[in-house]
Structure formats: structure tokens, C-alpha cells
Amino acid sequence: MTAIDDLVNEFVREDGFFFGLHHRQLDPVAAERALQALKRTEIGTDHGANYRLADNLFHAMLN
């Protein structure tokens, strides 16, 4: 799995960081997992991965 996949997982997992925030719950373990994935994430030449990342981040800002 790539770093982008790991970060996207935090949006869709029931125990993921962003899912928890949406429900006003902060899980420190999920927060650390999301932070580590974010630190490893780079925009690269995989356009599909870049699109998934941008799509998830954009929708997170709108919610």
C-alpha cells in the first residue's frame, strides 16, 4: 500500500481519524496514524492516486 492509500484509508475506515472527527470523536492512535501517513504522502506521477487524495481532501473540507 502506498502512503496515499494509507491516508485515504483514514477517510473511509470506521475507526479512521477523519471519520472520527466527522463524528466529533478524537482517537489519538488514529490521529498519529493519519499524521504519519500524511508525512509520507507526496504528490507524484500516479495521477489516479493524486486524484483520490485531492478528492478526499476536498470533500473533507466541505463537510
Rank of each mutant, 00 (worst) to 15 (best):
Met1Ile: 13
Thr2Glu: 10
Thr2Ile: 00
Ala3His: 00
Ala3Gln: 04
Ala3Lys: 01
Ile4Phe: 07
Asp6Pro: 06
Asp6Glu: 15
Val8Cys: 15
Val8Ser: 05
Val8Phe: 12
Asn9Gly: 15
Asn9Asp: 14
Glu10Asn: 11
Phe11Lys: 09
Val12Cys: 05
Arg13Thr: 04
Arg13Val: 06
Arg13Cys: 03
Glu14Thr: 14
Glu14Lys: 08
Asp15Tyr: 05
Gly16Thr: 09
Gly16Val: 08
Phe17Gly: 00
Phe17Ser: 02
Phe17Asn: 07
Phe18Tyr: 15
Phe18Gly: 11
Phe19Leu: 09
Leu21Phe: 12
Leu21Cys: 11
Leu21His: 03
His22Arg: 11
His23Asn: 13
His23Met: 05
His23Cys: 10
His23Gly: 07
Arg24Phe: 12
Arg24His: 09
Leu26Gly: 10
Asp27Gly: 02
Asp27Ala: 08
Pro28Ile: 03
Ala30Ser: 11
Ala30Val: 06
Ala31Lys: 15
Glu32Ala: 13
Glu32Pro: 01
Arg33Met: 05
Arg33Pro: 00
Arg33Asp: 09
Arg33Thr: 15
Ala34Met: 09
Ala34Arg: 03
Leu35Tyr: 13
Leu35Cys: 07
Gln36Cys: 08
Ala37Gln: 02
Leu38Val: 04
Leu38Thr: 14
Leu38Gln: 11
Lys39Met: 14
Lys39Ile: 07
Arg40His: 04
Thr41Trp: 01
Thr41Ile: 01
Thr41Ala: 15
Glu42Leu: 05
Ile43Glu: 06
Ile43Trp: 08
Ile43Ser: 02
Ile43Gln: 09
Gly44Thr: 06
Gly44Ser: 04
Asp46Gly: 03
His47Trp: 12
His47Asp: 10
His47Gln: 14
Gly48Ile: 05
Gly48Ala: 13
Gly48Arg: 10
Ala49Leu: 03
Asn50Phe: 00
Tyr51Asn: 07
Arg52Thr: 01
Ala54Asp: 06
Ala54Cys: 11
Asp55Leu: 06
Asn56Ile: 00
Leu57Cys: 14
Leu57Glu: 09
Phe58Arg: 15
Phe58Met: 10
Phe58Ile: 09
His59Gly: 10
His59Asp: 14
Met61Gln: 12
Met61Lys: 11
Met61Glu: 13
Met61Phe: 14
Asn63Tyr: 14
